[in-house]
C-alpha cells in the first residue's frame, strides 16, 4: 500500500464548523477550556455571539448545550472524549437524550463531538485514554454514535449531524490520521462502507483501525486469502444489512477498534450478527484493561500490547477461518 496521507481531524472539524456557522445562524458551539486544543476557538473568533466557553465544567457544558438546543439551536459541544461520556453521562442522558419535544422529536439537537478517543492519545496516559465511551454512548436511547476513520469522514459527518435533527456522539482521534476515503465517499446514518471486497473473511473496523484493516487485507491477499474490509463508522445505528451480507458471504468476522472489546463496536457487530446470521467473530481491542503512557512514537507499541495491529488482524483472520461453521 502507498504511504498514507496524514491529516488532522480537529482542524477539519473546526473548518466544517466555521462553514456551518456561515450557512446556518442557529449553529452554536460550546467548549470546556479545551477550545484551542479542539480548535473550536476558530468558530469563536468568527462568531463570538454563538460561542460559549464554560470553563472546566463538563456537566454544565452538556446541560447549557441542551438549553440552547431546546430553544431551536443546533449545539455542537466539544472536549476530550474522556471528559464527556465518562464524566457527564447523567447530563447526557437526562438533559439531551431523554427530553423529547413535541411533536414526536427524540432527544434534543445536541452534537457531542470529542477528540482524544481511545488508546492512541498516547503520552497523557491511561487516565486520558477512553476505552469506554462507545459502550456508554450506545446504550443511551436516541443517541447515534459515529467514529470517523479520517478527515473526509469528519467533514462529511459534521455536516450530516448539523443537517439531521437529534443527539449524536462523534469521537475523533488526537493524532493525525491516514486518509482512507475518497472525497466522493458518501456517508449515511446506519450505513457501513465496504472499502475492500473479499470472500474469505471480513474485518469490521472503525476509526484509526480502518487503515490497519486495509493493510491486513493487503497482506492476506499475498497469502491468497480474500478479505473484506468494512468501515463501521456508524456504530449506532449499526448497519445490519452489510453485516448479515458479510456473514453470509465470508463466513467469519474480525472486529477491531481502540475501545474495550466489551461494549464497543465489536459488541455491536456481534449482537447484530448473532441475531441475523451467526458466524464466528473475533473482537480485537482493549482487552478489558486500561491504557498507559506512550510517547507518540511508542503508540504503536501500546496498540500492539492490546493486539491492535494489522499483523494481529491478519493472524486472527487466519485463526478464525478454521472455526467457520
Amino acid at each position: 500500500m502507498n504511504e498514507p496521507i496524514m491529516t488532522d481531524m480537529r482542524s477539519e472539524y473546526s473548518k466544517s464548523l466555521i462553514q456551518l456557522g456561515k450557512e446556518n445562524p442557529n449553529v452554536v458551539v460550546l467548549g470546556a477550556d479545551t477550545t484551542d486544543s479542539l480548535k473550536t476557538s476558530g468558530f469563536g473568533k468568527e462568531f463570538p455571539d454563538r460561542f460559549f466557553n464554560v470553563g472546566i465544567a463538563e456537566a454544565n457544558l452538556v446541560t447549557v448545550s441542551a438549553g440552547l438546543a431546546v430553544s431551536g439551536k443546533t449545539s455542537f459541544a466539544s472536549t476530550y472524549a474522556i471528559f464527556l461520556p465518562g464524566r457527564a453521562v447523567d447530563q447526557i442522558r437526562n438533559n439531551i437524550a431523554y427530553p423529547s419535544p413535541p411533536p414526536g422529536k427524540k432527544g434534543l439537537n445536541v452534537k457531542l463531538v470529542t477528540s482524544h478517543g481511545g488508546l492512541s492519545v498516547g503520552p497523557d496516559g491511561g487516565s486520558h485514554q477512553t476505552i469506554e465511551d462507545i459502550a456508554i454512548m450506545r446504550v443511551i436511547p436516541n443517541f447515534r454514535v459515529f467514529i470517523p476513520a479520517d478527515t473526509i469522514a469528519v467533514s462529511k459527518l459534521t455536516r450530516l449531524m448539523a443537517r439531521e435533527y437529534g443527539p449524536f456522539y462523534m469521537r475523533m482521534a488526537r493524532s493525525k490520521t491516514p486518509l482512507v476515503h475518497s472525497e466522493s465517499q458518501e456517508f449515511q446514518i446506519g450505513k457501513g462502507i465496504t472499502l475492500r471486497d473479499g470472500s474469505d473473511c471480513t474485518i469490521a473496523a472503525c476509526g484509526i483501525t480502518v487503515r490497519m484493516a486495509l493493510e491486513a487485507a493487503e497482506s492476506l491477499q499475498q497469502e491468497g486469502i480474500s478479505c473484506r474490509v468494512l468501515d463501521m463508522f456508524s456504530i449506532k445505528p449499526i448497519d445490519h444489512e452489510i453485516l448479515e451480507k458479510a456473514a453470509r458471504e465470508t463466513g467469519c468476522i474480525v472486529t477491531t477498534e481502540e475501545h474495550n472489546i466489551i461494549g464497543g463496536m465489536g459488541s455491536a457487530v456481534t449482537e447484530s450478527v448473532s441475531e441475523s446470521y451467526p458466524v464466528p467473530i473475533k473482537r480485537i481491542g482493549a482487552q478489558d484493561m486500561f491504557g498507559e503512557s506512550a510517547r507518540d512514537k511508542e503508540v504503536p507499541l501500546l496498540l500492539e500490547k492490546h493486539g491492535i495491529t494489522s499483523f494481529n488482524m491478519a493472524k486472527q483472520v487466519k485463526e478464525i477461518r478454521s472455526k467457520k461453521l
Binding site: 447549557v64 430553544s71 447523567d90 438533559n95
Partner: peptide
C-alpha cells in the same frame, strides 16, 4: 424541562436564556 436528576436546571436555563439573547 425534564427534571428529576437534580442540579441541572440552572445550566439548562442558561442555555435557554443565551438562545434568547442570540
Amino acid at each position: 424541562f425534564c427534571g428529576g436528576s437534580l442540579g441541572t436546571g440552572l445550566s439548562y436555563s442558561i442555555g435557554i436564556a443565551l438562545a434568547a439573547k442570540i
